[in-house]
């Protein structure tokens, strides 16, 4: 409660916004350059790391998490954690399945309506 009252009064400076914006532009350019040249899985990992950094910058400074009370930050982290659980455990299954073959070709078309 106290911290929210503080942030209610406190307004960050213009300079901070400009710096964050420039950082975002630089990171985007970096991601874009990544697309040229084959980096394989590493490219994906780096791309996602950059995206996460950008998202965190937006959340912290444009959305003012940096100045706000702890619970708001908790919500942000919790959402990321649960999204990670959903994606992680699902992909784990797909990646470790029994796959003598993934049958290709059409299945028997089921009549529609």
């Amino acid at each position: 409660m106290e911290s929210s009252e503080l942030s209610y009064e406190h307004h960050p400076s213009l300079v901070r916004y400009v710096i964050v914006w420039l950082a975002l532009l630089v990171l985007t350019t970096l991601t874009w350059r990544l697309a040229y040249g084959d980096h394989g899985t590493a490219g994906l990992v780096i791309g996602m790391l950059i995206a996460t950094t950008k998202a965190t910058l937006v959340a912290l400074f444009f959305m003012h998490l940096w100045d706000q009370s702890g619970v708001n930050r908790l919500v942000f982290v919790v959402a990321l954690v649960y999204a990670g659980i959903l994606m992680g455990l699902t992909v784990t299954d797909v990646a470790t399945r029994f796959t003598p073959a993934v049958a290709r070709g059409p299945t028997l078309p089921v009549p529609k309506r």
């Binding site: 455990l89 784990t92 299954d93 470790t96 399945r97 029994f98």
Partner: peptide, 10 residues
């Protein structure tokens, strides 16, 4: 058809 590994985790 879940993998045995995932079955263990869950």
């Amino acid at each position: 058809g879940q993998s045995t590994f995932d079955a263990g985790v869950f």
